[in-house]
Design a protein around this nucleic acid. Structure first.
Lengths: 213, 213
DNA sequence: GGATGTGAAAATCTTCACAGCT
DNA sequence: AGCTGTGAAGATTTTCACATCC
């Protein structure tokens, strides 16, 4: 299959969210134009994105909401459960754990780790904070493929290397540091500083046309 | 000036971070190649990005670290203080407030708002949680140009409209909802569900070459 | 009639490659 | 010799526009 652009995958997630809404409301079909308006893009973009994976619509009618929802779940790999370990028992990890959508979409937290003796063994939501020393062996045992990295940047790369060594194949990092992973590992980085500085730049340079994001 | 791509601005932030490191270490100059390796990009990309704003390097030598740091701060609009209001006194807002880099880079939190009576009036870090009812008037008085939106998605758009009405010109949203803003307002959205689903997609479709992010 | 699916065109972003300065 | 700055080439992504089908 042709390589799918990251921007396309992000939009698929968005389509899914709104299709679920429509499905809940009992709407039977949705046109590319309706979806586009909901998701802040264009109808051509919606059709193109979906066309990479098949022909889900009916000409003259639009897309069947319930079916397309299922297709998108399948495409995004959300029909199964993903085990996730959270590294760093701080605020960010807690925010993630609190987030309902997290579990709803099949991401199950199988462990929370920290190296702070004051946190280890303490309750954290419904779980207990484990010692980072056990991280690698636990990941191997659980075969958790996804890790969320929510620690200060200083030793982020070292922890990443440990995670990968233990078999993690996808990492969502909130550490404000450049991280390198081998080709078989996926990495997404969220860096609040970069986002804020982007806003600072936009304000400073008063760019017109910022519009939707 | 030509429109600057969002991807360029993001890289500028990254360059700045590593230049500050080098500057702290006392390094005098850095080549585009060195910066590229630190930041996970290519030397041509570094030179191109910088070239949009001027000629900061010396041929044969590289870029003067300290000077370029100052230039990038200037370009990104970080030489001044930005007042920021945080909407939603939950975990995400707390994570942001905790984040040292936040203040270091000139973002000053001037207020935290929530509509939960159990939170209003309670301490929150060094601040006190204010009533959302006061949001608009406070923003007008303080003239805070930036808002961080860290609330559930249900009423996100309504709050955004209120913020914009009160004069906010840049919004960093963590609400997992599509938000629309007029052209004169900048919006960045961070959506953890989208990031995780992107990882799920990558794992499911076992794309080769994920590499650095 | 109405909306999809899709090649082709346009726009955008990245990489190349080399002239030109230090 | 070494490294920047940049026009041109290449790659990628988005938009257009229309034939095709319900």
């Amino acid at each position: 299959m042709k390589r799918i652009a990251d921007s396309t995958v992000r939009r698929l997630s968005t389509y899914l969210r709104y299709l679920e809404d429509l499905d809940t409301k009992g709407q039977q079909t949705a046109s590319s134009d309706e979806l586009a308006h909901l998701c802040g893009t264009t109808s051509a973009q919606v059709r193109k994105d979906l066309s990479f994976f098949g022909s889900f619509g009916k000409r003259g009618l639009g897309y069947p909401v319930h079916e397309l929802t299922a297709h998108l779940r399948e495409i995004l790999g959300l029909e199964r459960e993903w085990k996730v370990v959270i590294v760093g028992a701080g605020k960010i990890g807690a925010a993630l754990a609190n987030y309902r959508g997290f579990r709803q979409r099949g991401f199950r937290i199988v462990g929370v780790y920290d190296n702070d003796p004051n946190k280890i063994g303490k309750p954290w939501g419904e779980a207990i904070v484990h010692d980072m020393a056990d991280l690698a062996s636990d990941i191997r045992r659980e075969e958790a493929p996804i890790a969320v990295l929510a620690i200060p940047s200083d030793d982020a790369q070292a922890v990443v290397n440990e995670l990968i060594g233990a078999g993690v194949r996808a990492i969502l990092s909130f550490a404000p540091a450049q991280i390198t992973v081998p080709p078989h590992v996926s990495l997404k980085s969220v860096n609040m500083a970069i986002e804020l500085e982007g806003l600072s730049f936009a304000l400073t340079n008063a760019l017109p046309s910022q519009g939707v994001a």
